[in-house]
Design a protein around this nucleic acid. Structure first.
Lengths: 207, 207
DNA sequence: ACCGACCTAGGACTAAAGTCCAATTTACTT
DNA sequence: AAGTAAATTGGACTTTAGTCCTAGGTCGGT
């Protein structure tokens, strides 16, 4: 369940680059894993991996931009840092538009690279935290019965119990029961909390 | 009060580029204003301007990136499209990191440029809409007295009137009065609405 | 000194929501 | 067929919140 320990995943077809990267990153205490191709990385990566990705733009077979695209398609959300010897403006623009953390040209200054890595790791921590929060939230919401979910929509829309009852063709008494169960299942101590929880989960209000 | 009509602001030191841009943009019905330098643009621009900015990266005096920086400092939030004849990867990365919509190299394809402009205008519409919403919201909040603002914090934290009363050293009765005034001033028909409004305004809950 | 805001507060209710209790009807699973 | 989760409802209250109306005290500005 808990994501793997954060690491820097280096994807480069040049063995000497992989070696140099590994040495540099390890020297500052960062776990590193290297891959000789995008294919090799994709075959092993899972959505549980955390950390960041450092990838060469131009490689035989699948290039860095294609890899970035494939990651999105597979729900693998690792911040990407591009590294390249022959970068072009259009390529860097495409990469940045696609959400890359940085786009560096070889030879790259050690400090510049480490700064980018730390920024990427920080971004991933934030993303993973948000992700975990959302998952916990939806897990709680999954405990609601269909009817309770309907009632929830009325509550967070500011409707009175009697209004919800009329709209759902039942009585105020029943709504109160559902309401109490909702508060209990979602562990909300107040309506204010409930509204914020629903807001975070993106539950739509009525009308 | 209402922002000026959206236009495309072209900043380029080359008169022929300004002319060409003006012709192209006008041909698709877009209002255009041209400037020969970043300085000239900054001297005239106000936060009310809406639309987008198309700026040459390299110009005598202040360059495009500096202009982008100055805009932020002056609360002028126009989406920026960079145009350049001699773009470098680091420059494009810096521009994109700073939030540029696109970074295009001359000679640029008409359609590519128009696509970027439309995207920028769309982004600006969204930003201006959000901005207006936030302003209206803070305007309403400004109607609250200091005491009402304190009470509001308790309400959106899910506290009972009696709890707020105890904490503020007053009576439940008084809290009810404040509460009613808050709902009226903020034009909220329900607690759910109030919580969402406060959330949007970024009002902190207690503890 | 007077005005207008702001904060205060009591009386007297009405209405809405929450809390115990217990109970019935379905729909679906084992 | 028995068991279970879900949805339903009633009774009997207690708590909270909201609604009128009225009204005292404080303060800063004219």
């Amino acid at each position: 369940m808990s994501p793997a320990k954060p690491a820097v995943y280096v994807v480069d077809d040049d063995p000497s680059v992989r070696g140099a990267m590994k040495r540099l990153l390890k020297s500052v205490g960062l776990p590193v894993k290297t891959f000789a191709s995008a294919r090799e990385f994709l075959d092993q990566a899972t959505p549980e991996w955390s950390g960041c990705l450092m990838v060469d733009l131009r490689m035989p077979g699948m290039g860095g931009l294609d890899l970035q695209y494939q990651l999105n398609a597979r729900q693998i959300s690792l911040p990407v840092i591009f590294l390249t010897g022959y970068g072009t403006v259009p390529a860097s623009v495409r990469a940045m538009k696609a959400g890359a953390v940085d786009f560096l040209e070889k030879p790259v200054d050690d400090q510049t690279l480490l700064d980018a890595v730390h920024k990427a790791l920080e971004r991933d921590r934030g993303a993973k935290r948000d992700q975990a929060e959302m998952q916990a939230l939806h897990q709680r919401l999954a405990a609601l019965t269909p009817r309770e979910y309907e009632v929830l929509a009325f509550i967070i829309s500011g409707r009175l119990n009697k209004q919800a009852a009329a709209a759902l063709g039942t009585t105020e008494k029943t709504i109160k029961v559902h309401r109490a169960r909702i508060m209990e299942k979602l562990r909300c101590a107040s309506l204010a909390e409930l509204v914020r929880l629903a807001e975070k989960a993106g539950i739509k209000t009525l009308d």
